[in-house]
């Protein structure tokens, strides 16, 4: 990937974090941690990799983006608004009766592909889509992002077996491996063990990357496209709360309110990161 392109996508990721911060706001609860850990992955998918048609969100040829970890939907809204799927004013009205943007992914929002958020269901839904696309000989691809805490849901492993059983290769799983779930570190709260080994043993092609490294993300997505006859999962090592010093590697900002002071600090931190680009 060219340096110029990398820089552009870094700027996008920063903008996505800024949009997330705007939606979290002051004094309201919001899933800052697990949204910001996905900023680079979301930037590469929406602004580089996926075939999209924002003018026709239901275009059958579009690639699909699903957040099985639906609570991180703020990062998806952050991207969709930049691409013009809905007006910018909606960000202020997130999670209100007047607004379009629900607390978890909902089909009323243009660009949202499925109802997720009850954890563990996204990969199954993605499998159904991928199998349907294959029946239609439609080249569109399905990307589904799962949380590492979410991997304790049994249904995900039913779905993981199904993807391998049906040799689903038009689907890419991405695990946001930030090692922290809602109430603390995964190792302490509920240890899900050797995640890459689990996926391998379930018959998946496994790629491990730094989930904040834009060229690595793009390369992994390209590699996934070349893998035939089996599904691919990208285990993305990430930092929960990435980009906000007070939230990094902390469960405290999984879903929390920001004070006025912290909000201003967060804005300042993003501004400084922008200057360094």
């Amino acid at each position: 990937m060219e340096a110029e392109k990398v820089k552009e996508l870094k700027k996008v990721a920063l903008k996505l974090r800024s949009n997330v911060l705007e939606m979290v706001g002051v004094g309201k609860a919001g899933h800052l941690g697990g949204s910001s850990s996905l900023a680079e992955i979301t930037a590469v998918l929406y602004f580089h990799k996926m075939r999209l048609n924002p003018k026709d969100p239901k275009d059958p040829k579009r690639d699909r983006f699903l957040l099985s970890k639906g609570h991180a939907v703020l990062i998806q809204y952050a991207a969709l608004v930049e691409l013009g799927y809905f007006p910018r004013e909606e960000l202020k009205k997130v999670k209100t009766l007047e607004g379009l943007l629900q607390g978890h992914p909902d089909m009323k929002t243009p660009g949202i592909e499925a109802v997720t958020g009850s954890l563990g269901q996204g990969l199954s839904i993605a499998n159904g889509m991928a199998l349907a696309l294959r029946l239609e000989k439609n080249p569109a691809r399905v990307y589904v992002i799962m949380g590492d805490g979410e991997l304790s849901e049994g249904q995900l492993w039913e779905a993981a077996m199904a993807s391998a059983n049906f040799k689903v290769d038009n689907l890419v799983g991405i695990v946001d491996y930030n090692r922290i779930q809602a109430t603390g570190p995964i190792k302490e709260v509920f240890d899900t063990g050797d995640i890459p080994a689990k996926w391998k043993s379930f018959g998946w092609h496994v790629i491990e990357i730094d989930g904040h490294d834009i060229p690595q993300i793009a390369k992994a997505l390209d590699e996934a496209e070349t893998v035939k006859g089996k599904p691919t999962v990208i285990i993305a090592h990430t930092v929960k709360g990435k980009g906000f010093s007070f939230a990094e590697n902390s469960a405290a900002y999984h879903n929390a309110a920001l004070t006025e002071e912290l909000y201003k600090q967060a804005q300042e931190e993003l501004r400084k990161q922008g200057e360094l680009l």
Binding site: A114, G120, S124, I125, G128, M129, A132, E136, E158
Partner: peptide, 27 residues
């Protein structure tokens, strides 16, 4: 070609059916 044996996994089967419907099938 249009029959999918999902194994003994009803939860996965239900959500997979949702995915089929979202892509225009009638599961």
């Amino acid at each position: 070609d249009r029959f999918f044996e999902m194994g003994i996994a009803e939860q996965n089967m239900a959500s997979t059916a949702a995915g089929f419907a979202l892509a225009g099938k009638i599961p």
